[in-house]
Nucleic acid binder design. Sequence first.
DNA 1: GACTTCTGACTGACCAGTCAGTCATAATTT
DNA 2: AAATTATGACTGACTGGTCAGTCAGAAGTC
Lengths: 222, 222
Amino acid sequence: MVIAARKSPKAKAKEAARRMEQGANKRAVILAAALDEFSQKGFAAARLDDVARRAGVAKGTIYLYFKDKEALFQELLRAQISPVIAMLEAVLAGGGTDSKPAALRELAYRVADLFVEQVIGTKRKDIVRLILTEGPRFPKLAEFYYREVISRGLAALRSRAALAVKDGELRSDALVRFPQLIVAPALTAIMWKSMFDKFEPLDARALMQAHIDNLFDREERS
Amino acid sequence: MVIAARKSPKAKAKEAARRMEQGANKRAVILAAALDEFSQKGFAAARLDDVARRAGVAKGTIYLYFKDKEALFQELLRAQISPVIAMLEAVLAGGGTDSKPAALRELAYRVADLFVEQVIGTKRKDIVRLILTEGPRFPKLAEFYYREVISRGLAALRSRAALAVKDGELRSDALVRFPQLIVAPALTAIMWKSMFDKFEPLDARALMQAHIDNLFDREERS
DNA sequence: GACTTCTGACTGACCAGTCAGTCATAATTT
DNA sequence: AAATTATGACTGACTGGTCAGTCAGAAGTC
């Protein structure tokens, strides 16, 4: 055979890509296992031996992909949050450019559905719960989460609400002053689902809809 | 020295009472220390050595009053919840017997003030947070809490709301179907206070009032 | 001095993080 | 294409430290 004076660059790149992909796969497997363990036990009580076993990997392997337990935890949260932010931003932005002014209510329904379907109905709700439960013990995380999610989200909600007030869709400025009131039921639904659902199941979608109907004038029925 | 033919029954009772009181005191001191540690670190990461140091007591002493770490934790929560339940029940019951039908809104203001003052403004908010954050990991606790607090509280709220609907004070039956919507902002306020207050302080009282104004028809201004 | 209460050094289980060694696969040589 | 060498991802036994829970004895009380 040709002496193949060193592998061609092409072949080498391909090889590297395969490696990377494998690596990314393993990383993802570890993250998935970590999500299950952390959301079941919490940060402090989760054991990396269990994460490794669940991922079908030796413990040492975890340390090839993550600096330590805390890094694994934080990267897990960040990786899961980003898609949700993007999703919400897309819906909020998309609804803002072209639709008619009085669309806030419709927009709210759509966002609520999305949230129920993509967060409350999936393991992502555990991510939110982890942020809520571990946040106070990880100042870095709380700060990141406030900066990247909370402050932006509330600002968006606030300007939307102000618009609706100006257009007469909302009569009170309560939601402008406290946009937290808009999302409060979503948090409550998450906590309910993870603690009390087995005693008394909650229809999160219906709850969110009832909430929205409450915020807007009630005589309009969709 | 006088042989003191055995302490008189009276003195003995007194003595026993003093003992009990001392014991109860020490117990209370330990519980207070435990509250601080647990709410700062969470159950798993809290160290009993620290609880002991904070209480000014040796570690062994804790085990004279509590079976183990978990018992200390659960008794802490239960002990702190009871007064709050009693308080809320008193207000709800008191307002129910004599005042005129349309008092729900006023009642809501009063309960909200009480909650802001007695829970959100004190360390009790940490108790609520601990229940929310550790609940999923302590099925016994979640079940106790659901049975003793949640189901009762929601039932009371629900019947109140139904009454208000019948009297025309509330136009929608959303709150009857989902009494969770009434308390959702309170939970949100607690989580906010413990995570984001340093970035953006929240006026919990104003938030609760705005919420109540939203629930009832907005044109009535108190 | 009998009894109770309290102490804090101690023990053993447990677990995050390490690292010497393995092995499948790729690169190179013949 | 067979043999040889190199690579680095992966492993899991091991270490060092931590901490819940214990217990022998000190301190206090009558």
